[in-house]
């Protein structure tokens, strides 16, 4: 039997290639692994934890409200695990994994944020990816902030239609991109989704939600906000912020909102405009205690 030797002129092994070039962070692996990357923090989740055998004052947990190791939370988690195990319910909710407790939590969450309904999902990261993928089709156009989190970038990458990026928190740039997006969406008979964040997790600045929402006077679009770092920690205790953002903060963040310690939370708020300045979708999530947590996903 005749066999072509395709290896004759081509002999790249993908593993060898990766070993030779692990990327900007990967190339430092030997030096940083276990210390700067993948450090092990031991002991109870708290401001004081053990790092390499010594106690350190820890400022690296997104445990804003301190719920992660709250005694009542620990008790509820443990009792639930004892009663149900970690596997129940089994299967996708659509097939066999639905429970009345899921529905109860969705109802309570929806009521809590003043929305008609909610839906839970598994992970924050995956949630943003899924949201973008679920609501956008090939003819829809995405416009997103240049400093958006990796989960948004990955979601946008999955999007099969066109996308435009605007300079971080730059409303003029957003307006320009919305102009392009509108032209294209009109031609394709698609819709426009703008994506930003409530609080940008790296720099701590807030997305200009009020100014973005105000652009709805000029453009037709829906707004998706990832608020993993802001939800529940912003609010009326922050008068300075209230002054800056006025109505927006009052209407959105002073709700006794969910927050970062919440296990993997994605909130999709409705298309109906309830507030004067409003987002249509808000996404809150959190990589938390376990990697197997539910994600909360509000959709209306």
């Amino acid at each position: 039997m005749h066999r072509n030797n395709h290896k004759k002129n081509y002999n790249v092994d993908i593993f060898e290639k990766f070993r030779a070039n692990k990327g900007e962070i990967g190339k430092h692996m030997k030096k940083i692994h276990g210390y700067f990357a993948f450090p092990k923090l031991e002991g109870e989740l708290a401001p004081r934890m053990i790092f390499r055998g010594k106690e350190v004052l820890n400022w690296s947990l997104n445990n804003y409200l301190g719920l992660a190791n709250h005694t009542e939370v620990r008790k509820a988690d443990a009792e639930a695990a004892a009663q149900y195990g970690m596997a129940y319910p089994m299967g996708a909710r659509m097939m066999s994994g639905q429970t009345s407790k899921h529905e109860q939590l969705e109802r309570e969450l929806a009521a809590f944020v003043g929305k008609p309904d909610a839906f839970l999902l598994n992970y924050g990261y995956q949630g943003m990816v899924s949201v973008i993928d679920a609501i956008c089709g090939r003819n829809d156009v995405v416009v997103y902030d240049a400093e958006a989190h990796a989960c948004i970038l990955d979601g946008v990458r999955l999007h099969m239609g066109k996308r435009f990026v605007y300079l971080h928190n730059d409303i003029d740039s957003l307006r320009k991109q919305l102009t392009h997006a509108t032209r294209l969406a009109e031609k394709q008979k698609g819709g426009i989704l703008v994506i930003t964040e409530g609080v940008f997790g790296m720099a701590g600045d807030m997305g200009k939600l009020d100014e973005i929402a105000a652009l709805k006077d000029e453009f037709k679009f829906r707004l998706l906000v990832d608020d993993a770092h802001g939800f529940g920690m912003m609010g009326k205790q922050v008068p300075v912020l209230l002054n800056i953002l006025g109505l927006l903060i009052k209407s959105i963040f002073t709700l006794p909102l969910l927050q970062k310690q919440w296990p993997e939370l994605v909130v999709l708020l409705p298309a109906k405009q309830i507030f004067a300045f409003t987002y249509d979708i808000i996404c809150v999530h959190k990589p938390m205690l376990n990697r197997c947590q539910c994600q909360w996903f509000w959709v209306v």
Binding site: E79, A81, T99, K101, Q104, L105, P263, N290
Partner: peptide, 10 residues
């Protein structure tokens, strides 16, 4: 289920 019941507590 612990995530859901834990969520209700949170």
């Amino acid at each position: 289920m612990p995530m859901v019941l834990g969520g209700l507590k949170r």
